[in-house]
Design a protein around this nucleic acid. Structure first.
Lengths: 125, 125
DNA sequence: AATAATAACAGGAATTATTACTATTATATT
DNA sequence: AATATAATAGTAATAATTCCTGTTATTATT
């Protein structure tokens, strides 16, 4: 059973209000502003716990391991390597890729990581 | 300029002949059978060098960082979250996703990261 | 409100994966 | 064969994460 703790609440708040995809250490430093003696272990433990209850997602694409986000809905993105903008890829384009892979492999799929990088139309000119 | 070394050759041979997606440490232990005093640093250095010349790929999706493969034909990966095995998903299943995304977004795509995670048929029982 | 049970904590040690350093060895070129 | 230096072995260092232990705080129960 989970008890409430101030530490957990502040960690989640920090994640919910940032638009970036911070590392555990960034979260630690941020939470420290409010709870100066928080332990890094507490941050890791809670990031894991919050993941397990679906409040937080760990990004696993594009070498961004160890980055977390509080907005846990699935999405695809494409990054321009020149100007850095990130665009969304319409779900329809990649419709049912999980289903296709599940049928081909026999796996029960629980997660996927789909991301692209390239040069955007504007930068191509 | 690259010189040839026995160490590099054996490391590449080991990777080319395995069907698994080994870690640097597994490669190290395997190469040790042939070159008992090889250094782990040598394995890491060569894995990196072999990557840079396209002989070896490092898997970068779904928390599989640090896994390598010598098989360079296009395919995707699926990882079992229970037993940890990594299997290949043939390109045909997700045929031309890069092209689809390119046409939908107008990007010139140069890189992608596509991987899946779930529970494998054996672990589902 | 006080008590008891234990989840969660802080702080530090331990672990793991990877990289950096340095003196020595091996390879390609002359 | 002599030379220059890429590559090596072995070790130390770094970074990210997890584990451990004694203490604190939260929740349920009285």
């Amino acid at each position: 059973m989970h008890r409430h703790s101030r530490q957990r609440k502040v960690i989640l708040d920090v994640l919910k209000r940032t638009k970036t995809h911070p590392s555990a250490d960034w979260v630690y430093r941020e939470v420290k502003k409010e709870i100066p003696n928080i332990s890094l272990g507490t941050v890791y433990r809670n990031l894991k716990l919050l993941q397990s209850i679906g409040e937080v997602t760990e990004i696993s694409c594009e070498g961004n391991e160890g980055r977390f986000e509080g907005n846990s809905h699935l999405h695809y993105h494409i990054t321009c390597q020149k100007c850095g903008q990130i665009k969304d890829v319409d779900d329809i384009i990649l419709h049912d890729i999980e289903g296709k892979v599940a049928r081909a492999t026999g796996f029960k799929i629980t997660n996927h990581c789909v991301g692209f990088a390239g040069i955007c139309p504007a930068c191509l000119e």
